[in-house]
């Protein structure tokens, strides 16, 4: 259990001794999420409790960030119309993101 360090409005995922960039808002699958400049989309979504970023093509199983270094492509999402690995893409205010599931 996450014996909630999440009493602060911030996510318990975010280490507290880190000085982040300015507040930005992004939208994932219709939900507005607050994040900080400099964070990757994958990290910002993780902090908001979102770990499933797409479904796999054959088994249609949930997938999320795995390697965090731009290799595995498990974290691919569609950001402002372009497919990108979420772990290598920095959040930008107003960014609109949808899951990277290939229809």
């Amino acid at each position: 259990m996450s014996e909630s360090q999440s009493s602060s409005p911030q996510s318990f995922h975010r280490a507290t001794d880190v000085e982040r960039g300015g507040l930005v808002r992004i939208v994932f699958d219709g939900r507005t999420i607050e994040a900080y400049a400099g964070e990757s989309v994958a990290a910002a979504l993780l902090a908001a409790g979102i770990r499933t970023l797409r479904a796999s093509p054959r088994a249609d199983a949930p997938r999320g960030a795995f390697c965090w270094m731009g290799i595995c492509q498990e974290c691919v999402i569609v950001a402002d119309g372009v497919r990108r690995p979420a772990c290598r893409l920095e959040v930008r205010d107003g960014m609109v993101i949808t899951p990277g599931t290939v229809p």
């Binding site: 259990m1 014996e3 999440s6 318990f12 995922h13 880190v18 993780l46 965090w68």
Partner: peptide, 13 residues
């Protein structure tokens, strides 16, 4: 990478 560059914990526990 999560920890060092993003200052982000993988989870609670």
């Amino acid at each position: 990478i999560m920890l060092k560059s993003q200052g982000m914990l993988p989870g609670g526990l």
